[in-house]
Design a protein around this nucleic acid. Sequence first.
DNA 1: CAATTTTCTTGAACTAGTTTAAGAAATAAG
DNA 2: CTTATTTCTTAAACTAGTTCAAGAAAATTG
Lengths: 195, 195
Amino acid sequence: MDKKALTRYINHLVTFSPEELETINSYFHVKTIPKGEYLLRSGQICRFEGYVVEGCLKVYTTNSKGEEKILYFAGKDWWVMEIDSFLHQTASELNIRALKNSTLLTISWTDKERLYAQIPKVERLFRIMSQKAIAAWQRRLIRNHTMTAEERYLHFIDTYPTLSGQLTNKHIASYLGITQEFVSVIRKRRQLEKT
Amino acid sequence: MDKKALTRYINHLVTFSPEELETINSYFHVKTIPKGEYLLRSGQICRFEGYVVEGCLKVYTTNSKGEEKILYFAGKDWWVMEIDSFLHQTASELNIRALKNSTLLTISWTDKERLYAQIPKVERLFRIMSQKAIAAWQRRLIRNHTMTAEERYLHFIDTYPTLSGQLTNKHIASYLGITQEFVSVIRKRRQLEKT
DNA sequence: CAATTTTCTTGAACTAGTTTAAGAAATAAG
DNA sequence: CTTATTTCTTAAACTAGTTCAAGAAAATTG
């Protein structure tokens, strides 16, 4: 298992020396997780942060009726964790589960603190990553407040064609905050418009 | 104008020496902004990041019909900026406007880069702040997908009693992604339930 | 404090999206 | 390949929240 994708990802945001990259890589461990298995269950403490090399996972809440609401999908080159639980090392509110056989590069909370201490520039890396993430979450919230369900559906499949091709409509519906049935209606509507 | 609140805020997250705090403070400049005035208009580049000492501002989008959708309020001890525009120094999609006479401590983009270079531990500070912010945006998104308008309204006024007391129902409605009229219905409903 | 503007409330008509149900299609499992 | 399970589609009934309109209350302005 090579860590080229991770190295490329990191070096794209902050420039590190080959030695530094080597050190960073050494803290990450390969973890494979078969389709359907949990990476984290609500109630557990999220002790790792993971970079997705291959596969796809869902991060979601479950309500009292057992219905899932998907917060986000982590496909290739995404980071996955329960950030609140990881940051404070407290019980997770969310579940993380593999939608396909997946390969991650994970770093534990303690190792990450060590890495920050050893190479302070890693703070910069994660500061930049986090600020980009904030901007993305804000844009998503704005889309939820300004676009109809149909517009959000089209935006999603247009923006993430590869990812959305691997997902069921049920998953996409859950992510968009609408019902599976309504996704069917939208798809039907689109199909008729094309004629 | 003293910078005690900012110092307290910063030192609560990451410990700095008095000299470091002095240096950090020296990069921030006082800016007062009267009620109703813009701090930033969409299309402009967000060249500063601000810490709210006193007052309240709204960060919002405007659609083609001139309707506002409020992304967030920045009250006392909040940070305010258009993060995407600030980060990449590109045109802002959002507007920022004072809801009351406000006092900010602002730092320019260039000074912030200087500060990161001069005191690398500041990267850690903003890394931690940003990660907490991600968790907060995620929780807000989950609330939007799992709670009714009434539940979100009650959650908001319970969670931010001081802030919400300073806002009009119209503002709260815009923030929650519902109509002003429906807020009235919710309030009426609550009032009847109390009897 | 009088005039003007904005916000708040109320109600009736409406609609985007949900719920329920049931059959068809696709996937997964033995 | 057959059976079981999950997903997808369709349609009808429903509802949470919107839209429109108009008057009352509150806040702002001169």
